[in-house]
Design a protein around this nucleic acid. Structure first.
Ligand SMILES: [Zn+2]
Length: 284
DNA sequence: CGCTTTTGACCGGCGC
DNA sequence: GCGCCGGTCAAAAGCG
């Protein structure tokens, strides 16, 4: 009944960081790792994976040249306080951006704490270095935020356009997590009278299970099924914000990587997005 | 009480 | 037709 998914998106960005190490006077390693999967048939898409850690200052300009090279320096080896930021592109309506802001604030706070300690027994030179470092962090976060906004906008645009147009040779892409190939070809072998009745189908991969449900809409679960060749059951949801909204949602953990959720949206909402409140349901 | 989730029954498409 | 499989229904239970 429903056609194959027309697009697929997965984005994970995690940043591990910590406080300025007063012993070695460097920042603990900040590691940014992004992972983008292919998106749509209609463009040359992103399919990169990067996991790099660079040494200090001189890489700063370079590392910003590409989003999958976003890293911050450093030498110190304490990883303890790390921040994990998980963004998924879909209809998240800015909660991710909020998270980035929180990260920003946390960074500032940690700098502040460090600065206070430093004031006690360290020279102002070190203080200055820390200020510089902090400035770089701030800039990096601003860039991350900017890039993410842009990327997000692009993804949403592509989701829409790929749902509307059909020309297509979707290349199958194998990603690191999960090798499910994307079947996006829309062969119009026979003329479709009801072209428009084709439900929009969007497939999304999300790493953070918590974000699976908080996509800005309210969902009512109406079924669960065990699917062949997958140890995890698939859950079926219907949009419960408006009683006649036709949108459905399928959620299922990836068979290969249980930390990855595969979410399939089907249809289009016939109402506005509910107010950005808290999620109403959860899943086990 | 009004909403959810749970869970087995049911149903329709498809391959044999 | 039969059985498998994915999707849905709906009765019952859960929950604030
Ligand atoms: Zn809806």
């Amino acid at each position: 009944m429903q056609g194959p998914p027309v697009g697929e998106v997965a984005l994970t960005l995690s940043i591990g960081g910590g406080h300025l190490c007063l012993e070695c006077r460097t920042w603990p390693r900040l590691l940014a790792r992004t992972f983008l999967s292919s998106l749509t048939p209609s463009t040359n898409m992103i399919n990169r994976s990067s996991n790099a850690c660079m040494e200090s200052g001189q890489v700063l300009q370079k590392q910003f040249s590409s989003i999958d090279e976003l890293t911050l320096p450093m030498g110190s080896a304490n990883y303890d306080s790390s921040i994990n930021l998980n963004l998924s592109i879909g209809s998240l309506q800015g909660s991710d951006i909020l998270r980035i802001k929180q990260l920003h604030d946390a960074t500032q706070q940690s700098f502040h704490d460090a600065a206070k300690l430093q004031k006690a027994d360290r020279s102002t030179e070190e203080m200055r270095l820390a200020v510089e470092e902090n400035g770089r962090l701030k800039r990096m976060l601003a860039i991350i935020r900017e890039r993410h906004c842009a990327l997000r906008a692009q993804v949403l645009r592509l989701m829409r356009s790929s749902a509307a147009s059909s020309p297509t040779s979707m290349r199958t892409s194998n990603r690191k997590i999960g090798k499910q190939e994307i079947n996006g070809s829309r062969r119009v072998s026979n003329r479709q009278v009801v072209e428009d009745s084709r439900p929009r189908i969007v497939k999304i991969y999300v790493r953070d299970g918590d974000l699976v449900m908080r996509d800005g809409y309210y969902w009512r679960k109406y079924g669960q099924k065990v699917i062949r060749d997958n140890p995890y059951p698939r859950a079926y949801f219907r949009c419960s914000f408006a009683p006649l909204c036709p949108v459905k949602k399928k959620v299922q953990r990836s068979a290969e990587d249980k930390s990855v959720y595969v979410v399939i949206y089907e249809g289009e909402h016939n109402h506005v997005q509910p107010s950005p409140g808290k999620p109403l349901n959860y899943m086990t």
